[in-house]
Write a protein that binds this DNA or RNA. Structure first.
Length: 416
RNA sequence: GCGGUCGUGGCGAAGGGGUUAACGCAUCGGUCUGUGGCUCCGACAUUCGUGGGUUCAAGUCCCAUCGAUCGCCCCA
């Protein structure tokens, strides 16, 4: 067997790649309207960045990173998510010194060594935004609203917004202890997974899919928020309501990255097998400092593009087709073929999309080819046309055929 | 890391131990010596993911391995 693509990766071939371009275009457009600027950071970083940024105890860092030693014995990792690298770039380039807050976005591949399944790949793509430098709840709400609008403008139906507040590190640690106290007496009745969650991350027990009953009567994080955290959370909600964004509060929501503070949110939608979360994000006020910068707050989302595609497909949302072919040129005979090559270049230089045959096929086969490519016109040159200095233009939709001079060709093709 | 299902031409798909590997679509050629979407005719897998084993005989049975797919953990 010849070499195959690495497990969990995809070749995006012509026919599909146009969908990606369309989605990326939509992302860039919405970023422009919200005034987010693109940032391109490396696809690999020092491993330590992710250990510190994403969190040593997260599954991502513990078992899902593509880590390797480079030739200088430095430990490098392919980025498993987008935020850490952007934060690093923000700090390294001292963007906090700018007068306005930094509103950045990225689109690109991320890598996690996981077992692939529906909506999950080892190389996947995210469109994400990060806004640094403000704790204003209206910024949290803006980020949430922007993701929502992105899905809406793509034509996705049934996207739900769930929000939660995970508080700050101090209210969270109190809550964590309370949760462990709550579960301690029933620990051995919990499912196997939840027993291991008990120590690692008791909040996940609430999110257990096997047994929703686990969390009945359990304390809610929202009751442990301090003054500042609950005020922030209330203001975020008010802003969302003012913008007309519908949301649900899910006090059981837990995110997979350690860095979140205050607002955490997810977008959910059916259509990708067992997975319903299509993206998520939140505020991360301690992260910039943890990466070695000033104490600058941040908030953002990371949105899975494969999941967007899958839901678009599940909902059969039409995606605009790529650019059609204006003309397919056919030359009969050596001299005519040379003329075709020349005119083809002229058409292309004039901004038209044009194609010819390169396999020496019969005219009939070339016509079929033009039909397959959905060419609007077929331009034919044979001995007769050559002698008259004209070209036969056939409209493939109507079947009409007219003769035009070489000079008239470009305009004839342009305005139809 | 664990579990289920699957792996036959460019694509879809039959064949479940016996010697020439159905069929459909697509493609190419002809019918139509220079005109597509229709018809009819013809061509198109020394080979069944890979490696090993069982057998007189293996796409067909067994083992391993790789991959796809779905699910668990976790996540986008």
């Amino acid at each position: 067997m010849s070499i195959q693509k690495p497990k969990g990766t995809q070749d995006l071939l012509p026919g599909v790649v146009e969908k990606w371009q369309y989605i990326e275009e939509k992302a860039r457009d919405i970023c422009a309207r919200f005034n987010y600027k693109e940032i391109r950071s490396p696809i690999f970083e020092n491993t330590e960045l992710f250990q510190r940024g994403v969190g040593e105890t997260t599954d991502i860092v513990e078992k899902e990173m593509y880590t390797f030693l480079d030739k200088g014995d430095r430990s490098m990792s392919l980025r498993p998510e987008g935020t850490a690298g952007v934060v690093r770039a923000y700090v390294e380039n001292k963007l906090y010194g700018e007068p306005d807050i930094a509103k950045l976005y990225y689109i690109g591949p991320m890598f996690r060594y996981e077992q692939p399944q529906a909506g999950r790949y080892r190389q996947f793509h995210q469109f994400g935004i990060e806004a640094f430098g403000s704790t204003d709840p209206s910024l949290d709400a803006e980020v949430i609203a922007m993701g929502y609008l992105f899905y809406k403008e793509l034509g996705l139906q049934g996207v739900r917004v769930e929000i939660n507040s995970v508080g700050n590190p101090s209210c969270r640690s109190v809550y964590r202890e309370e949760l462990q106290k709550f579960f301690a007496p029933v620990k051995d009745q919990l499912c196997k997974d939840c027993q291991s969650r008990y120590d690692r991350n008791p909040m996940r027990i609430l999110d257990c899919k096997k047994d929703q009953a686990h969390g009945v009567g359990a304390p809610s994080i929202l009751d442990f928020l301090d003054e500042e955290c609950s005020t922030h959370f209330e203001k975020v909600q008010r802003h969302l309501t003012d913008m007309g964004i519908e949301y649900e509060i899910n006090p059981r929501m837990v995110r997979g990255l350690d860095y979140y503070t205050h607002t955490a949110f997810e977008y959910k939608c059916a259509g990708i097998g067992a997975i319903d979360t299509i993206s998520g994000g939140g505020r991360y006020n301690g992260l910039v400092e943890q990466i070695g910068g000033d104490d600058q707050p941040g908030v953002g989302f990371g949105l899975g593009l494969e999941r967007v595609l899958l839901v678009l497909e599940a909902q059969a949302v039409a995606i605009p087709a790529g650019r059609p072919l204006d003309a397919y040129m056919i030359g009969m005979g050596e001299q005519a073929e040379a003329e075709v090559a020349k005119l083809l270049f002229r058409l292309r230089a004039a901004g038209l999309t044009a194609e010819k045959d390169y396999q020496g096929r019969k005219m009939k086969a070339q016509m079929k080819s033009a039909d397959r490519m959905q060419a609007r016109f077929v331009a034919i040159i044979g001995d007769e046309e050559l002698a008259q200095g004209v070209i036969a233009l056939k409209n493939m939709a109507t079947g009409e055929q007219v003769k035009v001079t070489f000079e008239e060709m470009v305009t004839a093709l342009s305005d139809k």
